[in-house]
Design a protein around this nucleic acid. Structure first.
Lengths: 368, 368
DNA sequence: CTGAAAGCGCTAACAA
DNA sequence: TTGTTAGCGCTTTCAG
């Protein structure tokens, strides 16, 4: 990983067929870095001291109106723009307005909704989001956390791929709040916003059982993820309650992407006897299942965890929840902490609910 | 918008109910800011000079191995973490590793894929993404651009809601590259990654005409967006070529969200005569159309612009393109600029292609 | 191989 | 109302 921006050779040979327009605009070619005007220059141009210029531009009181105008004009003329880095440094790291967000993969609508909810809630408070995707890679996650912390972000929201968060303990003591989203912290006490995974999955299981199913295929995500465990546990509970002991015969795990899920479902359907219903434990897996089931003459019932973009149109029965709300709640926890809240770690649970839309209500073959 | 942390009025009147808790908690704990260790402290603890500590931790050569270890130990013991703000300040703004991304709404899969492609491509170069959503609001966009620029981001990728970009010209002269994504710059010459909107829309029109349709309803996004214009233009071209002059009778514009699109489509279907086909010019509109068409006994043919999450499963004929690729291309343009490329503004066009899946191939009612 | 001094651009104290 | 002096934490000369 090269630290961006030093690559002399490249700069040298790229300066070939220059853009006439750009060149003619940028004053004089020789000065490679068109250095930005500083506050000192603004002050000089307007004939006041540095501090007065600072005050005028910073909107502080105790500045004569005509001084303010003069400084403002000078700033405009120079195209002055305050240097936030310098300001942050001077004001101390705790003045930063950057909030970090680390999640698995932005392309997953679940995460992007989360990000959207978070950002919208934070924006009015003047905070901005720095995001990074971990691709569910533990090493990358640690590295990105380091990067973000060095950047002196004010707080960090993380959908962690790690199963151990000791290493963050030291950081927390330095006053930067961590909010865990979707997956709880392990070995560390910190605020978290979680889904009601157990309950949702249990509901899915019960719903299918109520529909008369006994052989239910379950396709799960990476088995190391706690969300996965919880969902499997919740489902198991429903099976236990129904006296179905051998449901694990139809359990396939570690299907982390759509393609893997599609294969897993296809495999389940080839079993003999085949499952009469499926429970898919997240949106990607459900998508894969829908692909596998397309054109199936007599598809099994299907209940999926997570809402789907076009779930209503497709008639897919799901265990839905509000991902944006999760982002908003994370924002609240975070803002509270930044506001000085020092109470014990809080946990917000986002409820799930069963949306009956058809796919989950198909009866087992042979049933009237 | 207040830069977090300074907004006296707001804090004042916000300190009504919920702040009570916060106040009481934050009030006392004497050590408010558990100040972080600095390099100087590490140096002191390890008994070397500041500069030596810097060298040791910075992985520079010319440091005795045992000195390096000693410094490293001191750093670990103190939980030292370099202050990126100070580093950036010292190294100069052009050393920042932050790239700004401004787009309409992260929750839209198109933007989140774009963000994903961009981030993945930038990460190996040591850059991080600061994102913000404009919600297609022009004023907000300008504000956010300002924020980002003050933060001394290294480059800015923007899906602009503005129809005029003069105000960025001054900035560009200061050496920060702007990359326009999805929508071209207006009144400013800058790199851009665009979709082949005209061509895609023309293809959609031709496809429906080839299917025997003459009355085709078109539902479009905000009419001020250039992407919208281009798509309408391309479609118009196809109509012209087919000798259909009055197609605009069935044109509805400014349907920016799913609900509006659903209403628009419902409205079109109530016309007499009703259109036998629909062209929906983006993913949200297509979603709305699918909702409106659900349970329709004899739905019109439908071609949508943009790929849909479950478009294959649903059998929706679309004009597809690769949003992640758009992000990657934006990254390339950007990295080139940062590498010193000063050539004239470049434009990368991402191709579109028709994916035939059923919905677009329904014949007009009454046709065999 | 190591260190001392300077200063990035800004804001916070404290004068005046 | 304005100005002066420090110094945030780091890297960069330039000397040892």
């Amino acid at each position: 990983m090269s630290l961006a921006g030093r690559n002399p050779e490249r700069e040298a040979d790229a300066a070939t067929d220059n853009d006439v327009i750009i060149r003619s605009m940028s004053a004089h070619p020789p000065d490679r870095q068109p250095t930005r005007p500083t506050l000192a220059q603004v002050a000089a141009l307007s004939g006041v001291s540095l501090k007065t210029a600072s005050r005028a531009l910073g909107g502080e009181s105790n500045v004569a109106e005509h001084t303010r105008t003069r400084v403002q004009e000078a700033a405009d003329q120079l195209g002055y723009r305050p240097n936030g880095i310098a300001r942050d440094l001077r004001r101390g790291a705790q003045a930063s307005t950057l909030i970090g967000l680390l999640s698995g993969d932005l392309a997953n609508p679940f995460y992007s909704r989360l990000a959207g909810g978070l950002e919208r809630e934070l924006r009015p408070h003047g905070f901005q989001l720095v995001i990074a995707s971990t691709d569910e890679d533990a090493d990358l996650e640690r590295q990105l956390v380091d990067n973000l912390l060095e950047r002196r972000i004010r707080a960090l929201v993380v959908v962690s791929a790690l199963d151990e968060h000791d290493y963050l303990a030291a950081e927390r003591r330095h006053g930067i709040p961590f909010i865990f989203a979707d997956r709880p912290p392990v070995g560390l006490s910190a605020d978290a916003v979680l889904l009601d995974n157990r309950e949702g999955a249990r509901q899915a299981g019960e719903h299918l059982i109520a529909g008369g199913h006994r052989r239910i295929g379950v396709v799960g995500d990476l088995s190391r993820l706690s969300t996965h465990h919880d969902r499997i546990d919740g489902f198991a509970e429903a099976m236990r309650a129904a006296g179905i002991a051998d449901w694990t015969d139809y359990l396939v795990q570690d299907a982390h992407d759509v393609a893997a899920a599609e294969r897993a479902v296809a495999g389940l359907l080839r079993r003999n006897p085949a499952p009469t219903a499926l429970f898919t434990t997240n949106n990607r897996i459900t998508t894969g299942a829908l692909r596998a089931l397309r054109d199936h003459p007599n598809p099994p019932a299907l209940v999926g965890f997570d809402e789907l973009e076009l779930g209503d149109v497709l008639g897919v029965t799901v265990i839905a929840h509000d991902a944006e709300e999760m982002g908003r709640q994370a924002a609240h926890l975070l803002l509270d902490r930044l506001g000085g809240e020092t109470g014990r770690a809080r946990r917000v649970v986002i409820p799930t609910r069963l949306l009956v839309r058809g796919s989950g209500e198909r009866f087992p073959a042979g049933t009237p």
